[in-house]
């Protein structure tokens, strides 16, 4: 590539200018660059966070305060939590949160446990058919759920699981991606510890459970976080498989809230905030780990 050839430029010439041009009592232009960058960063922050904040502001406005029209203010004049209470009057929001939490935590458990078991077998055991199983797992990644959803529904229906949380869980219970991430993690472990455990008389399960699994906690966390988010945020499948409003998960319930009963945008806004605030709080608390996790292999899908 032509650009690469230009690196032949004497590095000595570049070196004095290396490092950060912002430091030192440089010229105005050198300070303006990071300043400009901060201005752009703030603009993007407004663009990407503003919509959340506007929704929050709407949710906090009392019934007496206009939420549109010329008298609307950016911030609520008398912030109130009354709309959050109203959400529970219109839809059984705690029940929906409970349903979403059950599905999401169950999905974390099944993806971590079954994904790790399958990944361990594929990484550590030699057996006839391993290549075929691995190929099948890889190939499952290119089958979009949307393509098979009609027939997944028929299968779930014949299992008698329509309108159940187990039915919501099942299609995403062990994703091919979870298996692959865990396989990669086990492949990267040194074999010696497990072999030592084997010599000490530990069986396959003990070696997996007590020796290998504790060493791949980082990858388990990645699989867990993404399984949770996927299950918590999923909309299409729960919309298909859940019929009775009592059984809805939070995403389907929110859509139901906005469509069926209420024209009060304050209440809808409060509902969306209930769904998203806990998630964002956990995300910002764990963001360091989160981005490291993505770097390790979360983006492969």
């Amino acid at each position: 590539m032509s650009v690469r050839e230009r690196t032949d430029h004497p590095r000595a010439a570049a070196a004095p200018r290396g490092g950060r041009p912002t430091r030192g009592g440089g010229r105005a232009g050198r300070i303006a660059v990071p300043a400009l960058r901060y201005v752009l960063l703030l603009m993007m922050t407004v663009l990407l966070v503003g919509p959340f904040l506007w929704q929050l502001s709407t949710a906090l406005k009392s019934t007496g305060e206009p939420i549109y029209g010329p008298d609307t203010t950016l911030l609520p004049a008398h912030p109130t939590l009354v709309n959050f209470g109203k959400v529970a009057d219109v839809i059984p929001v705690w029940r929906y949160i409970g349903n979403s939490a059950i599905v999401a935590f169950a999905s974390v458990l099944t993806n971590c446990l079954f994904g790790a078991m399958a990944g361990y077998a594929l990484a550590r055991m030699r057996f006839r058919g391993r290549g075929a199983v691995f190929a099948a797992v890889l190939a499952s990644l290119v089958v979009p759920f949307e393509v098979i959803m009609v027939n997944v529904f028929l299968t779930v229906r014949s299992l008698g699981l329509v309108d159940t949380l187990l039915g919501v869980l099942l299609p995403g219970a062990v994703s091919g991606l979870s298996i692959l991430v865990m396989r990669t993690a086990f492949l990267a472990l040194p074999k010696e510890t497990e072999e030592a455990a084997a010599i000490d008389g530990a069986g396959e399960w003990a070696r997996f459970w007590r020796v290998a699994l504790p060493s791949v906690r980082g990858s388990l966390a990645v699989v867990g976080v993404f399984s949770f988010l996927f299950a918590w945020d999923d909309f299409l499948w729960p919309l298909i498989v859940l019929k009775n409003p009592d059984n809805f998960t939070l995403t389907v319930g929110l859509q139901y809230l906005s469509g069926t009963f209420t024209n009060d945008q304050r209440v809808v806004a409060a509902g969306t905030m209930i769904a998203v605030i806990p998630l964002l709080a956990v995300f910002f608390a764990l963001q360091r780990m989160f981005f490291r996790g993505i770097g390790e292999g979360g983006v492969k899908g």
Partner: peptide, 28 residues
Amino acid sequence: RRWYVPWLFLAPALLVTALMTWGPLANT
């Protein structure tokens, strides 16, 4: 090791994948 041990490890994942991906794809 007994021959079936790897398959026990794989069983839950294979069951879900077969039931929820390959079966429905074949049906489709």
